[in-house]
Design a protein around this nucleic acid. Structure first.
Lengths: 124, 124
DNA sequence: CAATATATCTTGCATGGAAAGGTATATTGC
DNA sequence: GCAATATACCTTTCCATGCAAGATATATTG
């Protein structure tokens, strides 16, 4: 029998909406230091954030595809002797710039939210 | 002539997606101290956040309607002697609880983002 | 050879922010 | 008296995107 989780069920995807628009930033950020492949990013996101920012592969792959089409990442296939081929992503010059832009936008937004919720006073 | 803003135009709505899921929180938060009406919230959001969290009325009214249907806000019409009638919103008990829940979800999410982007190390 | 883990991709759905349009009342200016 | 503007509400339509679900393929293990 399915759990009829009254308070949790009608709100199945609250955190889901919060991720909106931040996934590209997240992906670019995780790729930035060097190279990364899709499956790796998915698992790293789950482990490194204790599930807070978990995404499914069905979510991430389209994101990577968008980044590729936009010219923010370059792609390299690696087919090892043994194992499933991997598609490695690396930031382009434009990708690094985009990362900075998105990071700044996130900071601005998060800052505005924090200020609003925190009820920061303007004067002493 | 429309401004052909190369770098800004193709990205017309980046911050737009970031607001996803936070508008209910914002609305509840702004109503919480007492009462507020729709038009007021729209203008306050723009002025109090310097446009960072600006929304159009076409965006906010559906949000308020959802909150009302969910039982998070109660409604009172005020038709002054002179002036357009206003629809005042006030948080219900459930609304106050919801506000806390959403606030916590936001904090968790923003914290995870900050930790990820900030490259916090786990050990010394 | 069945099951599992790794790794990729696609289709279809649901959500919700935004543009655009519509209504109604009051004030201001000609 | 009437057009224009500001206030205040609401609705319809569009679209971007996260996710579930399903499909494919290779390698390992029992």
């Amino acid at each position: 029998m399915k759990p009829q989780n009254t308070r949790t069920n009608d709100r199945k995807g609250i955190g889901r909406e919060l991720k909106r628009g931040s996934l590209e930033l997240i992906a670019l950020h995780l790729i930035a230091p060097g190279e990364a492949y899709g499956y790796e990013i998915v698992t790293r996101l789950t482990t490194e954030t204790n599930g807070s920012l978990e995404v499914t592969d069905g979510t991430l792959y389209p994101v990577l595809y968008r980044l590729e089409r936009a010219g923010f990442v370059a792609v390299r296939w690696e087919t090892p002797e043994r194992g499933v081929p991997r598609k490695y992503y690396r930031l382009t010059e434009a990708g690094h710039e985009e990362l900075e832009v998105l990071k700044e936008e996130w900071t601005t937004f998060a800052g505005a939210m924090a200020r609003l919720l925190g009820q920061k006073r303007k004067s002493s």
